[in-house]
């Protein structure tokens, strides 16, 4: 047997080689090869531009995503459990899920100014609704016989929610949370590019204005790293919470 190489490493290496080759062969200024981008990234990091931006952006992401998570879980559980809440809020949630969140940027800008608040609001707009919808469907798809069982043993509504519905719905809720993290990162970048020009968005906007593709792609690399890190974190939490799901049904989720 050959030594096992992790699939993710092979995939990354293949992507890097392809980028390098296409970049060199194409020879266009808007798509520099990976090596050029890497050199530029090292220069930016050495100049201290990256670290401060990472810190700025991560704070926006963290606050925005935390708000999305709390709001998404609360509204999602209420919509999944209570038909009246779903009837009242469903139309708004679906409308806002599909509406391009950036449309609201001018509103946030005028209400919250050009600071952190507006960016966080954009992150929340991006991430919350997918979490709400997944949480609501997760709660609705909990087998009715589990709720009936709990009620037969005298469970209160609170016990039904906390001891049965939430744990049973966790695998599907976490799927929504993973999607939410991805959207929160998108929201963070868009917010930083179009409202308050700070963090990564600031660098991307400036470099883009100078047609400095190497810088834009260098920042993109960092952003991808941040996004993958966030998703990895969520997956680690997911594994802890849903270790009980049998492997056979895990694959079909």
């Amino acid at each position: 047997m050959r030594a096992r190489v992790p699939a993710a490493a092979v995939s990354l290496a293949t992507g890097a080689v392809a980028w390098e080759l296409i970049g060199r062969l194409a020879g266009v200024s808007f798509f520099p090869p990976l090596s050029t981008v890497a050199v530029r990234l090292a220069e930016m990091a050495a100049a201290g531009e990256i670290l401060q931006s990472v810190a700025d952006s991560l704070v926006n992401l963290l606050i925005g995503f935390t708000i999305s998570l709390v709001a998404g879980l609360l509204v999602g559980v209420a919509m999944g459990r209570y038909r009246k809440v779903e009837a009242a809020l469903g139309v708004y949630v679906y409308a806002l899920l599909t509406a391009p969140a950036l449309v609201f940027a001018p509103i946030f800008f005028s209400l919250l100014g050009d600071g952190r608040g507006s960016i966080i609001a954009v992150v929340v707009m991006y991430a919350t609704f997918v979490i709400i919808i997944n949480t609501a469907s997760a709660i609705q798809s909990v087998p009715a016989h589990l709720v009936e069982m709990a009620r037969s043993y005298g469970a209160s509504e609170r016990q039904v929610l906390l001891r049965v519905l939430l744990p049973a719905a966790t695998p599907m809720i976490m799927a929504g949370v993973r999607l939410g993290v991805g959207r929160a990162v998108t929201g963070m970048i868009n917010g930083e590019m179009f409202i308050a020009v700070v963090g990564f968005g600031h660098i991307v906007t400036e470099a883009g204005g100078r047609f400095d593709s190497a810088s834009v792609l260098a920042v993109l690399l960092v952003i991808i790293a941040v996004a993958l890190g966030a998703v990895w974190l969520v997956q680690a939490v997911d594994r802890r919470l849903t270790g009980w799901v049998p492997q056979t049904s895990r694959g079909s989720q």
Partner: peptide, 22 residues
Amino acid sequence: FQNFALLPWATVLDNVAFGLEL
């Protein structure tokens, strides 16, 4: 129950104790 209605995330011990826990 016909379909057992056990909590899939809970151990045998926690399932048996569930009514008492409630």
